[in-house]
Nucleic acid binder design. Structure first.
Lengths: 143, 143
DNA sequence: TTAACTGATACTAAATTAGTATCAGAAAAC
DNA sequence: GTTTTCTGATACTAATTTAGTATCAGTTAA
């Protein structure tokens, strides 16, 4: 069971990459090269991130992208929701077939509890925190 | 982001259904009808559960399936692993590209921590527990 | 011997994920 | 003022996973 898709994976890595170069515009091409992410794929990922307000862009030569917000305000949870939708443990288990009373269903609470916990965990991890960790350990491949 | 697939969803519901009728063999057909799970799909799900040792089967008329183990020993985590493989947050994020030293990577620990937490949560939920909850609330549709 | 079952396996369809390609237009550089 | 470097938008294909169907063989009880 793979929780995160390539979209999310690449997006987080791209955001970290941007967050480590806070001055000026960075081209999608350079991020693509640095992180070994297919260029056209990354372009579309950036477009989503721009639409969602996490990234700002500037057209034309000398343009590019950069973080639009404080790295510590960008949570992995936000990125997941952009590319994979809200975290849902199961669309229907214990909801359609088994429960007649959704509001008070004990099982639903069980499932919701796990959903909430997963969400909380992914909320705790921010791009800023990841950059901090990376700098502390000094393991970023191409800084 | 949907964490559980239909395979897992149906399997858990089928296991609950079996767990609520502990005496004798139950046909796949009756579980299919009761839980509104497509018959042939459910057949294949049972075959997996049988191979994995969670369910026992008996061929021929009067045969069918039943739980092979104590319902409290069957964890949702086990079912997930049968149909969706091990819980993995991300195959490669921070593993291939960013980390030069896997063993000591702080980020890897971050991800691993979430993986472990998810696994623990799904381990806490057993078929027996779910049946207990259901009985307590009396909300199983077709008991 | 027939009806009710599982065992095994091959197959199709739909949805999601991953990746590519192309054209238009903006801005800087020359 | 044209060329180069960039994003905006969008259409497209390929691969993989998920979901579901169909069929035949063999077993057991009535």
């Amino acid at each position: 069971m793979k929780v995160l898709t390539k979209h999310t994976d690449y997006a987080v890595r791209a955001l970290i990459s941007l967050g480590m170069k806070p001055d000026g515009w960075v081209s999608a091409k350079s991020v693509s090269d640095e992180q070994a992410i297919p260029y056209q794929f990354l372009r579309r990922i950036f477009q989503e991130l721009i639409r969602s307000g996490l990234v700002a862009s500037k057209e034309g030569a000398g343009g590019g992208v950069k973080l639009a917000r404080d790295p510590y305000s960008i949570r992995v949870k936000d990125v997941i929701e952009i590319f994979q939708g809200e975290v849902q443990v199961s669309e229907c288990m214990f909801r359609k077939q088994l429960c007649s009373n959704r509001a008070n269903c004990v099982l639903r609470h069980e499932i919701m509890r796990i959903e909430q916990m997963v969400n909380e965990e992914f909320s705790k991890v921010t791009v800023g925190k990841l950059i901090g960790d990376l700098k502390r350990v000094g393991q970023m491949k191409n800084p």
